[in-house]
Amino acid sequence: MIVGVPKEIKPDEYRVSLIPAGVEEMLKHGHTVLIEKDAGSGSGIPDLEYKRAGAKIVAGPEEIYEQAGLLIKVKEPLPKEYHLLRNDTTVFTFFHFAASKQLTDAMLGARVVAIAYETIRDEHGQHPILTPMSEVAGRMSIQEGAKYLEKPMHGRGILLGGVPGVAPAEVVIIGGGIVGTNAAKVAAGLGARVTILDVNIGRLRYLDDIMPKNVVTIMSNTQTIREKVRDADLLIGAVLIEGARAPHVVTRELVQAMKPGAVIIDVAIDQGGCVETSKPTTHSNPIYKEYDVIHYCVTNIPGAVACTSTHALTNVTLPYALEIADKGYERAARENPAIVRGINMVKGTLTNKAVADAFGMPYNALG
């Protein structure tokens, strides 16, 4: 199979979907790999390394989209790429369809096979491709939050960990999954007072066992969210529902009641955001203020640390990409249920219920 790796064109996206070691593996399996010129430059991987691994470097995306049977990307196709897609192509990337009707309609119209990184789920109920990027985003959320709490950044002027005699910042994390857990680890390590809210009591028990004493776990409900959001200096939105649009668990009224100069990092923005006042931003223009509260809603947070993120991502995507390339998507899906869960649409038909429900559209489940 011809495997294509186009250069990412989303604003401030520096990751690449395949490293040279992955090219070598593809070639060992008998596949041809096309890499767009400078696709790896943002991650510190020059074209020469891809050439040495056996890839063919092409000048632009047109040749890749025209020839590749399997497109491996990092982020969803953007409007200027829509017309390049062929109806016999399998696209393997982060899609987050429930956050965008435009993207959903475009991919249905292109009649591609869309396999979404974020909905691949293994036999243990884990999301192996989403996990490393959630780890990065969770850790970065505290790094960015600490920065924007500084007064020159128009924050409250609070040091996350405080100093002897002065209280540390109040960090509130809504969602105790991979993002929330990694955010809590970093915030706790810096000495903040951390509260994690989640609806799963079993998860809260686990977090209570593994976290240090400056982390408190609380059952998430309307009342506890209302109380803790008002107390927060830094609020991390880490709500995830697989494949679905994130619910607005923090209302506009709650944001309005927050402390002036408080910071919201809505990591759920890829799925539409879990804070009602959130809207997508970029690394070039990452924040805006509403009700005197700083909102950081970058849709590709891990892209800022592209070298780390690219290697972490390809560590987990490569085995699935090889399986799809070796067998074709149909046989790969028959033999691996995780890939079935990753397939969101097939040649103009939605196959993911959560995406269909987000827009009130019909779907056909893959049997």
Rank of each mutant, 00 (worst) to 15 (best):
S100C: 08
K80N: 12
V5I: 14
H283L: 04
G360N: 05
E135H: 08
D208F: 15
V186K: 01
M361H: 05
R341I: 08
N285V: 10
K185W: 10
K228R: 11
L234D: 00
L70T: 09
N364W: 15
Q126R: 15
A169V: 02
G30V: 06
H295S: 08
G42C: 05
R230K: 15
I129G: 10
H127S: 15
E13V: 09
R205P: 11
G44Y: 01
T299H: 10
D38M: 11
A167H: 14
I301C: 07
F95E: 02
N336I: 12
S141R: 07
T195C: 02
E323M: 11
T119N: 04
A232F: 00
I129Q: 13
E49I: 14
E135I: 12
I324N: 05
A167D: 15
M133F: 07
T314N: 14
L254R: 06
I178P: 00
E25F: 06
H83L: 14
G4V: 01
G360L: 04
V355S: 09
I129M: 13
A332S: 15
E76R: 12
E76I: 08
I64Q: 03
M107C: 14
A55K: 02
Y329Q: 02
D292S: 11
L84M: 06
V229R: 01
G176C: 00
G175K: 02
E276F: 00
G328D: 02
E63A: 09
L254H: 08
M219P: 03
K289R: 14
P286F: 01
R156G: 12
Y320P: 06
V263W: 03
R226Q: 13
N87H: 12
P152H: 08
A55C: 02
E36H: 06
I265S: 01
I241K: 08
L84P: 00
H29T: 06
Y14N: 13
D266R: 00
F97R: 11
L254K: 06
A188I: 12
K147G: 09
P152R: 07
T351G: 05
T351L: 06
A332W: 10
G348H: 04
L160H: 01
I301A: 03
Y65F: 14
I294K: 03
S284H: 12
L318R: 09
L108G: 06
L240C: 05
T251G: 02
L254D: 04
Y288K: 00
M107S: 08
Y288I: 08
M345W: 13
G155V: 05
Y14C: 07
K7H: 10
A110Q: 01
L27N: 07
P362G: 10
S43D: 00
V216H: 13
K51R: 15
I225G: 00
G138R: 09
I64M: 00
M361N: 06
T281F: 12
F97N: 09
P6R: 01
T349Y: 15
Y65K: 08
A169H: 02
K80V: 13
T217S: 03
G360V: 10
G367A: 15
K56N: 12
L350Y: 06
V3K: 02
P260D: 13
L207T: 01
L18Q: 05
I115C: 03
Y329M: 08
R245C: 10
M26H: 13
Q256R: 14
Y296V: 04
R139A: 05
T314C: 15
Y320Q: 05
G162C: 01
V255I: 12
G165Y: 07
G360K: 04
M1S: 12
P128K: 10
S309L: 03
K353E: 15
V293K: 05
P61W: 14
V355E: 08
I142C: 04
